[in-house]
Design a protein around this nucleic acid. Structure first.
Lengths: 174, 174
DNA sequence: CTTGCTTCTACAGTGACTGGAGATTGTAGG
DNA sequence: CCTACAATCTCCAGTCACTGTAGAAGCAAG
């Protein structure tokens, strides 16, 4: 099985597979005479394990530990349980934060009367002094495929946010 | 007001303030003769705006747009509303994903009988073929201050994950 | 004068990929 | 056999939103 087929059968991009190999999450596969990677069904299982782990939100390092544990069938599974329940607790905390966030966003959207910026509830809510103690670790706007939110932020004149972040200092004062 | 005071009064790290300046989210402040940045109350407001926006999960680019909008009080606020409600929709989607995730994690933790790895429900759940269509964009384990989940993943022997990711190929096969 | 704090610049690192350049290999059709 | 095109290869830079470090300089108090 070549990398393309592995990619298709695990719904993982080719570059991601190579990345997993580089960081040691996948074993280095055998190569053909011309240097192409060849995979076995064991590799498919392993990659599925990694992908499921990621889908469940485990970090690469957590998955690395879980793989190591999985390869010792006679060990006590306490450590795996610790990783899982710890992660569960983290997810529950983020759920709470995200719920609070959603409520705040919903209020500000609901209350805005859609008139002038000067009276805009959205702008005013964000502009208020550093208020409520909700401090969130949300990584925002990764959005991806599901949302059609593109183009609102970038469309104005930051369109040339081309390459280096150092070049982005086309900043505009108020 | 020097950068340290601005940092304290907005609960923002000094390095973050300088970062915001570099990318043009904050105006370049005046400097003392020796080159220290000096800030005004206007800068405090602006930084609060940015911080509140971030806390609400808006991206830097969205905040950039919102700042531009906020500086034109007589404009229609439709665009601000679009950004906000679009973001709200994204947050709601993530909430759903995260809830599904939590349920899955809860089941696997609950059902594990804490015996041998070979029977561990956690391991088996992750090892199953690429199943349910939940595809999540969660960035995991950023965790930070609130959780005490450190050391489970990194403690084993990846402790020398020192500098370059290229050096991390101390990979172990199964 | 010395100690210790703050601030400065410049740059590398994080996590988990993603994308591109430029080269090579494999395969199918003409 | 030649040509097109797809798949693969390596290498490296970019993403996002910061965070941290090194090494130098400034500043106030004892």
């Amino acid at each position: 099985m070549k990398i393309g087929e592995l990619s298709r059968s695990t719904d993982t991009k080719v570059t991601t597979i190579r990345f997993y190999e580089e960081i040691g999450l996948l074993n280095r596969p055998a190569r053909t005479a011309s240097g192409r990677r060849t995979y076995t069904t064991g590799d498919v299982e392993r990659l599925n394990f990694v992908r499921n782990g990621r889908r469940l939100g485990f970090s690469i390092e957590e998955i690395r530990s879980l793989i190591a544990l999985a390869s010792e069938p006679n060990r006590d599974c306490g450590e795996a349980m610790t990783i899982a329940s710890c992660h569960l607790a983290a997810v529950e905390e983020r759920l709470e934060q995200l719920t609070a966030l959603r409520d705040e966003l919903a209020v500000m959207s609901r209350d805005c009367d859609r008139q002038r910026i000067a009276d805009c509830r959205v702008i005013h809510t964000i502009a208020r002094p550093v208020g409520s103690p909700i401090s969130i670790g949300l990584s925002p706007a990764r959005a991806g495929r599901a949302m059609s939110c593109e183009g609102h932020a970038t469309a104005r004149e930051a369109s040339s946010a081309a390459s280096s972040r150092l070049r982005r200092s086309a900043f505009r004062s108020e």
